[in-house]
Nucleic acid binder design. Structure first.
Lengths: 340, 340
DNA sequence: AACGATACTGGAAACGTTTCCGGAACTTGC
DNA sequence: GCAAGTTCCGGAAACGTTTCCAGTATCGTT
């Protein structure tokens, strides 16, 4: 493996000069610059990242901490994030986390051990305390987190998200506009300080706004975003417990798909007997039978902004910022007017 | 940031002793070992990976090169791979590639620049030449590649895959057993030296085995594994061109789902008017309407084996090896007996 | 009592960079 | 033709580890 010293020897210059050339420092003549560059080619020199990181006390890799890499919405984000990060010359370290793991603690450990220069969080909670946030010493962006950070000052974090509460309200509004008043909700959890809680809150707010009483009986918790079986079973229990509802609001597309299957298996047709609305806007959801009515999150734009934001924060440390995207309703075949 | 020197000072021992403790070397007394360990805790010492990598002239990160991170089958693999790699103390660098990119060349570049210690390839071609393979100087595992590496000696590569040809044959066999003889195929490409080609080959072999003539007219190419719209359109064109078929074999679950939608939009009911069989076995496919009949790839086991294999190859360089998994048919509602 | 073996420890070089500091050579302005 | 500034370059320290080598103390054997 040829190193910087070999280049220096080969060119008859000092090591420091080679380093200057390699790092585009100004103080080097055109002649020597070319000479060094030529040697670099000839000797197939490849810089040693470890050595560079050691003296710079930093690296070029950004961590991506994902709660559930198999979540298809995240998959879309990861794709664009990966592409942008690579194109800008950084690299991505992927860490899958289970829901029970503490993302902030893991992030802190990772950055210390591995000199990561930034963290992208996908999924997780939102009510971090200032003390918890203080664990993280590098720029970070919370993606798909809501902007409603309970205890935190906006200057304390950066985020890219949709307005989860609003999206949930929009979903319920759409159902109410079709005449539905007995609307069940299919959610991950009610009070886990994640987007689930916010969407649940949006659901309740929308009901209240329309003068519809909230019925705890119509709440089905799946405990998961992606385990279809668990979602199917939660929906089944809901149906068996109280099948008076005429519509379901599912907080994610996959949940809606499993719910439709459960409804069907219980003899309820969608949308004739029960309408279904979800949030996500996966491409897949336009190709199921029936197609899904869903609030579309602009995944590609969001992912790109995540990447751009973390890089900006790394290259020009400055103000934290929060971005909120609008969701738009994509009509599908899973809803219809009540008694219509 | 406290370092190994601080620990040494604090304990009144030499740096080398601390290093020995940290690396579980035998030559150190119980007393000093405990003393050092205590100091490590107290001072919140965290080893510097760059420095360690520098002297060891290697890193601890394995690259994961994925053709299409948004492929849901890959997502399942990535999840278990990520978990295993992390648990074994390594870390994962993720690289998304588009189909047009040359995975081997990118892998070679990456390993040189960044001292990666291994590469996991997900997706891609299979007919690498010995010259191309020679670009890669670190242990690597080709996952989801078929084992049928055209030009390569088995000692030249490691792989974890299903028998793609066999799975395709099984799919067709299942349809034939139900009385179908006009069987269309929905594939990515026919001759791109990827799994698509193998599954296509398996399809043709099965037809031949049953004495069914191969009809080029019944081949629909999507050019993609995951773009639902393109798949839908390819299927639509197939139907409009020649709707004499009574069954479709789709080489991936997502393709089958889009195809069912296209069939439905053209007034063909599944399975009454057309049966559909696919390969993948996504959990999702058991929750669509109708549910999918599909050959299940054991994704979690395959992912785990990928991780274990690459680690084994790294820790104990040795023989390359190829693993083949069996697929099993998961019956669903997307097929029925012809005229039954 | 002397010796070799054993158990443990310290010193120092090495890994491949970056960067600070000082100095040589060359230019400019008078 | 000389001081002052500019441009370019080399030397060397530093980053935080690992590991080799040599050394001391302790112990058991004879």
């Amino acid at each position: 493996m040829t190193n910087i010293k070999d280049i220096a020897l080969h060119c008859g210059v000092a090591i420091s000069t080679v380093s200057r050339v390699l790092n585009d420092h100004p103080d080097v003549s055109q002649d020597t610059r070319e000479k060094v560059l030529r040697a670099v080619k000839e000797l197939h020199y490849i810089p040693n990242t470890s050595a560079r990181n050691l003296v710079r006390t930093s690296s070029d890799t950004i961590a991506l901490l994902v709660k559930g890499v198999n979540n298809p919405f995240f998959a879309r984000l990861i794709k664009v994030i990966g592409r942008e990060i690579a194109q800008r010359g950084y690299s991505l370290e992927l860490h899958h986390m289970d829901t029970s793991e503490d993302e902030l603690r893991i992030g802190a450990q990772l950055t210390n051990e591995r000199k990561l220069i930034g963290i992208l969080f996908l999924g997780g909670r939102f009510n971090y305390s200032p003390e918890e946030m203080a664990l993280i010493h590098v720029p970070s962006v919370f993606c798909t987190y809501t902007n409603t950070f309970g205890n935190l000052n906006p200057s304390a974090y950066s985020s890219v998200a949709i307005d989860d509460k609003q999206a949930a309200q929009d979903a319920v509004d759409a159902l109410v506009a079709l005449g539905h008043r007995k609307i069940a909700i299919l959610t991950d959890n009610k009070d886990d300080r994640s987007i689930s809680e916010l969407r649940f809150q949006g659901y309740k707010d929308a009901l209240a706004m329309h003068g519809i009483p909230f019925e705890p009986n119509l709440v089905a918790c799946t405990g998961t975003f992606s385990d279809m079986r668990a979602i199917y079973e939660a929906t089944s229990r809901l149906i068996e417990r109280d099948s008076s509802f005429t519509a379901i609001f599912a907080i994610a597309d996959l949940m809606a798909i499993a719910a439709i299957k459960a409804l069907s298996d219980h003899g309820k047709r969608v949308p004739e007997d029960c309408s279904v609305v979800a949030i996500d806007g996966l491409e897949l959801s336009s190709y199921t039978l029936p197609t899904l009515t869903t609030l579309v999150q602009p995944a590609e734009e969001m992912g790109l902004l995540c990447a751009k934001t973390i890089i900006e924060l790394i290259e020009h440390p400055g103000q934290n910022r929060q971005y909120t995207f609008e969701t738009v309703l994509r009509p599908g075949g899973s809803v219809c007017r009540l008694n219509g």
